[in-house]
Design a protein around this nucleic acid. Sequence first.
DNA 1: GTCTATAATTCGATAGAC
DNA 2: GTCTATCGAATTATAGAC
Lengths: 206, 206
Amino acid sequence: MSPIAKIKTDGSTEEKIKDAARKLFMQKGFEATKTRDIANEAGINLALLNYYFRSKEKLFEIIVKENMGQFMEIISNIVNNEKTTIQDKVEALVANYIDMLTQFPDMPLFIMNSIKVDPERIKIRQRFSGSYFMKQINEAIKAGKIAPMNPMNIMLNIVGLTIFPFVARPMFLNKGGITIEEFGTLMQERKKLIPGWIKSMLEAKK
Amino acid sequence: MSPIAKIKTDGSTEEKIKDAARKLFMQKGFEATKTRDIANEAGINLALLNYYFRSKEKLFEIIVKENMGQFMEIISNIVNNEKTTIQDKVEALVANYIDMLTQFPDMPLFIMNSIKVDPERIKIRQRFSGSYFMKQINEAIKAGKIAPMNPMNIMLNIVGLTIFPFVARPMFLNKGGITIEEFGTLMQERKKLIPGWIKSMLEAKK
DNA sequence: GTCTATAATTCGATAGAC
DNA sequence: GTCTATCGAATTATAGAC
């Protein structure tokens, strides 16, 4: 089981600290999260944080790496499946991301910020470009089955349509906006709509 | 002229501080930006920051407000024009955003983070939902001219397709990725592509 | 492993001279 | 208006007892 998916922990002190850190880092970012907050949230003593993780920075690196791993794992499995069609993969990507982000809505902004601070941290792009999915796309373009375009657009559109609403989520939930439940419903609707939109994009003749 | 568009300043100390603050806050966020960094960047003394702006927080609020203003101004003018069609508005929104973000690529992440910390800061959503644009959309849906759907999806798709690449930009520019120039070219291509994609979305029958 | 107490540093802000 | 010097609070990290 991937680290972030495990809500219930084994109750060890180390896990308690990591869970608290994950929650707070995602909510407020690295700088705004204080070691004291993490200790309080975890219900442990401040000194234990350094005992287990040596420093706030090291703890942060661990959390980031685990989140990245979660993100990449989803992508890799779907994108390198040689038995599914392009459209199957789009549906799977969209559905999996929306399900994960519904559970951890702060993740996209957290990851984007982490990448900005240290761009070497992640290789999502490479994960896409070297994939079987991209091979399928390129062949389909060559065969004239989908509109000719820079394949990066396809990746940007799938990910953008899926993830952006979660990045913009705080904008919707403020006073006078929609409720968390309504937002969730909208995302479930989009789970079905996005693949159709992508399909019509791929088919569009210019 | 809107504040953020003015790169060349009048050279006053106040402007020098604001320019330095704008640059650093956008690059690194509020917490990670130190008042000493701002003073250095501006080439002035640390004490002057407080002399002009009283506190780091107040300075930040000013920068955020100016950026938000820039964003909203673009939207409002386009979205409330009663003489243009839906498709005209989509083209104008996409083109204006891409041009602005090409100049200030850090802005989306900065604004998203600012909204997350204080969701009351911005009313982009209301700007959309009360607009003439939305009236046109709703009428077109009623008339059966575009596919029936929650209009929020249309807004999310326009903004998501346009802005998301800039949020994800750091991911593309790292080692082994594409150059800044190639990214710029890709965005210019998207300026032409996105309106077509939106069009086919609106027309798609389910 | 866990705690208390504290060292060491950083940072925002201000006092006061010019 | 601008600078130097410094205060005071907050924060990370550690020493040392249990």
